[in-house]
């Protein structure tokens, strides 16, 4: 059973500059005390968006001009740090449907793909070009063409790249693997039977 294929993501975008933006910055740990992911979006980048007293401070996500953006753009090694899915969930639940960055941390990349939120890499200078375009025209529509490895905005376009495995699952609607994993259950039992430590003692 396949899900909806994800071939394109279109929307307005916001640039959050910086390299090595880690999961603690994406969603500070104190907001992870929850038993569901609902409501996490509110705390996205909380510490960067607020003063120590809790007042909003200048941040692209607090900038009215970028309100409603659904594509997040950032630097190198985005999402490094913890394996917690709270980070991509917070991004997703804040309304984002794709992330463009120079590179991604591995677990973040996998977690996001599994949510159906494509992560596309682009070269640093290209990202700066996109960022400049957004600064000049915050309402610019950005389209990520998953199949063509292309990020289009206005009359411009930059090459983007999605790892072949992730691209394949997005385009074929297999980004959430649960159904495929369940389909393999007979083989799971066979593998389990071969391993002594899997026996119930």
């Amino acid at each position: 059973m396949a899900l909806e294929p994800i071939t394109h993501v279109t929307g307005r975008a916001v640039f959050v500059p910086g390299d090595d933006i880690d999961t603690d910055r994406i969603i500070p740990a104190r907001f992870m005390k929850c038993v569901t992911f609902d409501g996490l979006g509110e705390y996205l980048f909380y510490d960067a968006r607020h003063t120590p007293d809790g007042d909003p401070c200048p941040h692209p996500l607090n900038d009215e001009r970028f309100a409603g953006a659904s594509i997040l753009v950032s630097g190198n090694n985005f999402g490094c740090g913890s394996s917690r899915e709270h980070a991509p969930q917070a991004i997703y639940r804040a309304g984002f449907r794709a992330v463009i960055a120079e590179s991604f941390a591995e677990i973040f990349f996998g977690n996001s793909t599994q949510l159906g939120m494509p992560c596309i890499t682009a070269a640093g200078p290209d990202i700066r070009r996109l960022a400049n375009a957004l600064e000049n025209r915050p309402d610019l529509e950005v389209t990520i063409d998953v199949e063509a490895d292309l990020i289009r905005f206005g009359d411009d376009a930059i090459p983007g790249e999605i790892r072949p495995g992730a691209k394949h699952v997005l385009l074929s609607g297999h980004w959430d693997p649960i159904q495929d994993l369940l389909d393999g259950l007979p083989e799971v039992e066979a593998t389990t039977a071969r391993l002594a430590y899997m026996r119930e003692s």
């Binding site: 992870m32 005390k33 929850c34 038993v35 569901t36 992911f37 394996s83 917690r84 899915e85 709270h86 495995g165 394949h168 699952v169 074929s172 297999h174 693997p177 495929d180 994993l181 393999g184 083989e187 799971v188 066979a190 593998t191 389990t192 391993l195 430590y197 899997m198």
Partner: peptide, 27 residues
Amino acid sequence: HAVREMPNGQTQLLIGTHLIHEVTSPQ
């Protein structure tokens, strides 16, 4: 631990031991 190759080309890998804690399991 490789169970099979999945339709998407990834490996379905058996995880023999699963450890859980309160932060990432309730969801």
